[in-house]
């Protein structure tokens, strides 16, 4: 009887956990909720969009759909990624549209208890504050949780 109750407790606790996919961008660890990710692909050269800002790498053909690819590193204000075959494109769905995010490499899937998520401490970088939803400690490294809606704002204007 008691054992059963204990098991349900565990289940409840387990259900509270969410799974995140962690990856590195410019040697820093980031993660996204697994439900936000549609697929992960190997990098292949993209078609350049004229007049696009530095963090928009171009567009890619995803089974007949044209999707934009962003360089997460440049987006976060870090150095631009020299994209190569070793890099990955994480396809996510933002504002109902698929979007590709270039990351250095994917690390692992981690299970996070929402209680363990810490608020982003104030630092002197507006980009960071906007783009990072929170941070967690995993295996003694800091993993930043990306606020996808802020990183990829609704269809934007590319100015010449």
């Amino acid at each position: 009887m008691q054992a059963e109750v204990k098991q349900t407790d565990q289940e409840v606790k387990h259900a509270e956990h969410s799974e995140f996919v962690s990856f590195t961008v410019a040697t820093q660890a980031f993660c996204l909720k697994i439900t936000q990710i549609r697929e992960i692909r190997r990098w292949s050269p993209v078609t350049i969009l004229p007049h696009a800002p530095a963090d928009v790498l171009g567009v890619m053909n995803l089974r007949g759909a044209v999707i934009p690819i962003y360089d997460l590193s440049a987006r976060f204000g870090l150095q631009q990624t020299e994209a190569s075959e070793r890099n990955v494109v994480i396809v996510v769905s933002v504002h109902g549209k698929p979007v590709g995010l270039l990351a250095e490499s994917v690390s692992e899937i981690i299970s996070i208890n929402p209680d363990d998520i810490q608020d982003t401490p104030p630092v002197d970088s507006r980009n960071t504050m906007e783009y990072i939803q929170g941070i967690i400690s995993h295996d003694d490294t800091m993993v930043r949780i990306i606020n996808l809606d802020a990183v990829i704002s609704a269809p934007e204007q590319v100015m010449p």
């Binding site: 969009l49 004229p50 007049h51 696009a52 928009v56 567009v59 759909a65 044209v66 999707i67 934009p68 549209k97 269809p155 934007e156 204007q157 590319v158 010449p160």
Partner: peptide, 14 residues
Amino acid sequence: IKSLDGVCGEIPGV
């Protein structure tokens, strides 16, 4: 023709 609407904004020349 694949529209670029929603993929990116208006690009002059494209």
